[in-house]
């Protein structure tokens, strides 16, 4: 079986965000980019399934610029067989990304697709569902446990206060949450092999944007707070402030 994993290239979570000169995107100077952390769970799950079945192929797909090749190489180094970069120099909204991914998944004929539950840049958490709906595939987002038997899919997904067990069937898009598995480290052999693999490049499917960023800015800074004391004797004053000033208890 062919499995597609979608990977996105995002700023490291430790990044201090500076706004770019266009006031619409971040300033990429000095920012380290990484594979989206949740996409590592997606890669791992795809590789695990392939290994268990003893056959099949795992293809990584990313929408982005040449810079995204670094993230694609990371997926290849983990053990993904081949990769496609759908190129677009411009920033796309989620629907634009989903359209490009859906077209490629269809071309690949993959009935099983793994994504991350969220990319840690725009924090949308919707590319999986959009892609599935465009393809008329089923979708289970934020999955922490997964069983696939033939066509049947049983997934547990995280929701407020617990987990939902979802029953569905192939074809399906699964978006992965921490807890689903432990992503492997790329071995030295894997890293060497990844360097030799070619990344297929093609233009991302065209789309009409449905949203426009007017401006990006930093959240208003908080006033530095008040230190009330340095031991338990400060507790009554803290409780008074919470009750009378903040009015939150």
């Amino acid at each position: 079986m062919k499995i597609v994993v979608c990977v996105s290239h995002v700023p490291d979570t430790a990044t201090r965000i500076k706004i770019g000169s266009d006031v619409k995107t971040i300033d990429p100077n000095g920012v380290t980019y990484i594979i989206n952390p949740y996409d590592e769970y997606a890669v791992e799950e795809a590789l695990k399934l392939k290994e268990r079945s003893g056959s099949g192929e795992v293809v990584a797909v990313s929408v982005g610029t040449d810079n995204s090749k670094e993230t694609i190489r990371k997926a290849l180094a983990m053990g993904v067989d081949s990769a496609v970069l759908l190129k677009d120099e411009n920033h796309r909204d989620s629907l634009g990304i989903a359209k490009a991914l859906a077209e490629e998944i269809k071309a690949q004929g993959a009935k099983l697709v793994f994504m991350g539950k969220q990319s840690v840049d725009y924090d949308n958490s919707i590319v999986g569902q959009l892609t599935a709906e465009l393809l008329d595939y089923n979708c289970v987002p934020v999955v922490v446990k997964l069983e696939i038997e033939g066509e049947k899919v049983i997934a547990e997904r995280e929701i407020e206060g617990g987990r939902e067990v979802v029953e569905t069937s192939l074809p399906v898009v699964i978006t992965c949450q921490k807890g689903l598995n432990e992503p492997r480290y790329a071995s030295l052999k894997g890293i060497m092999a990844a360097k030799k693999k070619t990344i297929e490049e093609k233009p991302a499917a065209s789309f009409t944007p449905t949203s426009e960023v007017l401006k990006m800015y930093l959240p208003p800074g908080k006033q530095p707070g008040r230190i009330i004391g340095s031991d338990a004797s400060a507790v009554p004053e803290l409780v008074r402030l919470l009750k009378e000033e903040a009015k939150v208890i």
Binding site: R16, K24, V120, Y122, S211, E212, L214, M216, Y217
Partner: peptide, 20 residues
């Protein structure tokens, strides 16, 4: 309508217009 939402886990905000 201009919509505001956080990005980068709240480290930045954007104002967005929807074109549809």
């Amino acid at each position: 309508i201009v919509y505001t939402r956080p990005l980068y886990a709240g480290k930045a905000l954007v104002d967005v217009k929807l074109l549809s």
